[in-house]
Structures are given as C-alpha cells and as structure tokens.
Nucleic acid binder design. Structure first.
Length: 420
RNA sequence: GUGGGUAUAGCUCAGUCGGUUAGAGCGCCAGGUUGUGGCCCUGGAGGUCGUCGGUUCGAGCCCGAUUACCCACCCCA
C-alpha cells in the first residue's frame, strides 16, 4: 500500500522550501517595519468561536470546517486567522498593554473545499490585525502593508479592489433596497442566484451569468446607501491611499465571505492564479471584538495565501535572491585519510562552517562530483600525500584554484573564506 | 456536490493501423589510465503501462467500471 497526502494537501519539498522561507521572512521583516508583532495561536479552537464569528450562513461554517469531537468537546481546525487572533487578544488582555495592538501571524488554514488551482484544503496564510484603531489611517496602513508585501515579493500587475460594506446601521437599509429590487426579478434569475437572494443578496450582483448580469445592471449600489459616518470614513481611506500613491479600483460589488466585516473591504487580485484571483483579502471588522466578549473595539486586517503568492511568483518567474555558496565538502582517499577526516569534519561544523562528506566509500572522482552536485564552494582533499605532510588540499570549486594548507590552519582558513 | 480532462521509468513526455524483447530527454550510478567536479563521450540500473473486468489469436492502444490527480462551477486566500 502506497500512501499519498490527503486530497487538497501538499508536501513542501526541500527544493521548494527556500521559496517559502523567502515569502515568510519578507513578510516578517515588513511587519517589524510597520510595528506588528507576531502571534501564534493553536491550530484548533472550540468550534463555537468560528461558528459564531464567521456567520451561520457563511460557506466556511456551513460546509468547509474540519470539525471533530473529543469527549464532549467540539473542536475545529482553524478555517481563518482573525477569530483566533481576537480570541487570544481578549483572553490575554493584550488591550491592556496599549490602546492599539498590532499583530501578525503565519499559519496553516483548513477548509474542506473541492481543490483546484490555487485552492487547497490545507493552505497557509500570512495576515495582520490592527486592533483598537478606528482611524481611516489604520485602514490605509493595512492596505499599504499588503501593497508593499507584494512589491517585496517581486509581484507586479495586481489590482486593488476597494469597497465599503457599511455598518450595522446602514447595511440593513441597503440589503432591503437590494432585495426589493431583486424580488420581482427572482423568477428570471439563475438557480444559484435564487439561493443567493435568500442567503446573501449581495452575491447576486457578482453572478457570471449574462442574463443575471443584465437583469441586475441597474441594481442599487451599496456605496449610495452608506450612512454619513461610513461615507466619511470611506472617503478618508481613499484620500490616504491617494496620498500614499496606492492605486485602486472602486468595486461596489466586492463582497467578503465572512459576516463580521464592516466598512472597508478590499482584495488584491492577480490574474496569474487561474480561476482564483485573490491573493490578499481583508477589511475592517468593528463589531467582531465586542461579539467575542470584549469591549467595543475597532479592528482592521487582512489575510493572504502563501501558496497563491508563490503561484504568482512562479507565473512571473520571479527570482529568489541568490545566497552565496558556503559549503565545504571533505573528500578523502584511503582509510587513514578517511579516519583523519572525521575529526576535521566536526571541527569545521563546530566552527560554524557548513561541511559535508561522502558516506558511501566512493572514488575521489565520485566525491568531487558529489561536492559539485551539492553546490559546495570548497573541497578539502585529504589523502596519503596530505597526511604525510600534515596538510590538506583546499580547492575552490568556483575558481578551480587549489592550494595546500597546513592541517592546523585549515579550520580558521575556511572560517575566513566562508564568513558571511 | 456537478461537469470536463488526464493516468506509460524518480521527473517531463513519446508510443503509428491492436502485433512479438515498451522508448526518449532530464535525473541517478559507473567508466573515459596512475588522486580531482562542471562540458563531452560510453555504458548501466530503473516500468506488474493507475486498478479490475471485457472484446480479440493477440491490448500500453478498443470497450465498461473503478480509483487517484488536474481543471472548472460554487466560494475564496
């Protein structure tokens, strides 16, 4: 029986790991620059946390959660990153450390969906949450960080879609206006849209069916129904983005998948992703913290799929910053030299010089080939001649130059040559 | 859940009209003179052709079923 990774999951093999590390380290560095601190929460939470915050009718809650029972507890593998962050923020009273708390995370996310290009059952997200700031400058900062993140990854050609979904005061008015508009059209809408009408009428506006599109062309726009406060906030967000020189497209039909979003909603889209196009999705969630049992506290943040960022980088053939070759390969010939090479190898490693050797008793030629295959910068060659003179042959595999170095100076010499 | 596509060596793929020992490139291993990698040359290892059944004198190829993967719908990061 051969086992395979479960459907929708993937192994990240050693050859791919440098790409992952690049993305994660780029994000970490950026977050530090913007004043965000890392938080790590458990992979699973009590089911209720997600069920209550994401929305009873959301896709995540209705069909995508990996939920399991242990004893009389119902637990769920994290299907999104914001709710656990808020839970930890409240549980440990991080608000007491200052009025604004800025957190970031890098973690796996689990959703039971049908896998396809850019969509997996386990994927990984980087994300940020800015808690305690209602100011439009916070929205702009979050968006700016996302923008800089893509730039730092070598990603270009993305489009920032921006919308405001209002607040609990103005949104019901709009939803009612939209329902009133759609209701007489209902019999002519597609099956999906009839369902959407009941669950989330905003989604009808997003239907790909040409007949639906035509029918809803004159539908009321959410932006026209914003209350005065939401409208002012949205205008300020747009002004700050203009100030920062971050371009965007107003997208009145942009809807987020989770119920807790208020006011600003945004997605960075890119067409290098097949049918999936969102690489960063986020927005403001001013009611969420209170809903989780905290004092009324505003929040804004985003999540971004690492796999999707990597797919775009691959489509753009974005190069990885080259790391200088530092490895030393110890090659030997003969039993005595082999015996002498063991302590040498360990001395190198203890001196923080990356060092490798042959374990198969192969020919010197094969060992040199192996050194090259592994991308070693230097080869140390040790045979009877070197032993007799208490020296080691040092070959630079890039310049093809080699010279003899006294045994007692080899380690310090390589420390010098491989210093970063 | 619903459609479509694919399945042959570690990887990417050929495989003609159904015909005898199933191929290439890359990768891997070894050799090309006495102790030296990369290029080149030579050789080698590696495949129950996804699985099960059917048609046929004969199936990698045709038919059916099944499984897996991919793509798309839906929805999203």
């Amino acid at each position: 029986m051969r086992y395979q990774a479960p459907r929708g999951t993937h192994d990240v093999l050693p050859s791919e790991v440098p790409n992952w590390r690049f993305v994660e380290e780029t994000f970490r560095e950026l977050c530090a620059r913007y004043g965000y601190q890392e938080i790590r929460t458990p992979v699973f939470e009590v089911t209720e946390l997600f069920a209550r915050t994401s929305g009873e009718s959301s896709d995540i809650v209705t069909k995508q959660m990996y939920t399991f029972r242990v004893g009389d507890e119902s637990l769920t593998l994290r299907p999104e990153g914001t709710a656990p962050t808020i839970r930890a923020y409240l549980e440990h009273a991080l608000h007491a450390q200052g009025p604004v708390c800025k957190l970031f995370y890098i973690c796996p996310i689990f959703r039971h969906e049908a896998p396809q290009a850019g969509r997996y059952r386990q994927h990984h997200q980087v994300g940020i949450e800015c808690l305690g700031a209602a100011d439009a400058a916070a929205d702009a900062e979050v968006i700016a960080l996302g923008h800089d993140y893509l730039r730092a990854l070598g990603i270009t050609g993305e489009v920032l879609h921006l919308n405001s979904v209002g607040c609990p005061q103005c949104r019901p008015t709009y939803r009612q206006a939209l329902r009133d508009f759609l209701q007489p059209l209902l019999p002519r809408l597609c099956d999906d849209c009839q369902r959407r009408y009941a669950v989330n009428p905003l989604r009808v506006l997003d239907c790909k069916s040409t007949t639906c599109k035509a029918l809803v062309a004159d539908a009321p726009r959410g932006l026209d129904y914003l209350c005065a406060e939401c409208a002012a906030h949205f205008a300020q967000v747009r002004r700050w983005l203009d100030t920062l020189g971050i371009g965007y497209e107003l997208d009145p039909r942009l809807v987020r998948g989770l119920d807790y979003y208020t006011r600003t909603a945004f997605e960075f889209m890119h067409d290098g992703l097949g049918a999936q196009s969102t690489v960063i999705g986020g927005g403001r969630y001013d009611g969420l913290i209170e809903q989780c049992g905290g004092k009324p506290t505003p929040g804004v943040g985003f999540g971004s799929g690492i796999e999707r960022a990597l797919l775009i980088r691959a489509a753009l053939q974005a190069a990885l910053p080259a790391a200088p070759a530092r490895k030393v390969f110890v090659a030997t010939q003969g039993d005595a030299a082999r015996a002498a090479s063991i302590p040498l190898l360990y001395e190198l490693r203890r001196a923080k010089v990356p060092a490798e050797t042959d374990y198969l008793g192969r020919s010197l030629k094969a060992q040199m080939r192996e050194a090259h295959r592994q991308g070693a910068r230097f080869a140390l060659i040790l045979g009877d001649d070197e032993l007799a003179h208490n020296v080691v042959t040092l070959r630079d595999l890039q310049t093809h130059e080699q010279r003899v170095v006294p045994r007692e100076q080899v380690v310090s010499e390589l420390q010098r040559l491989t210093a970063v």
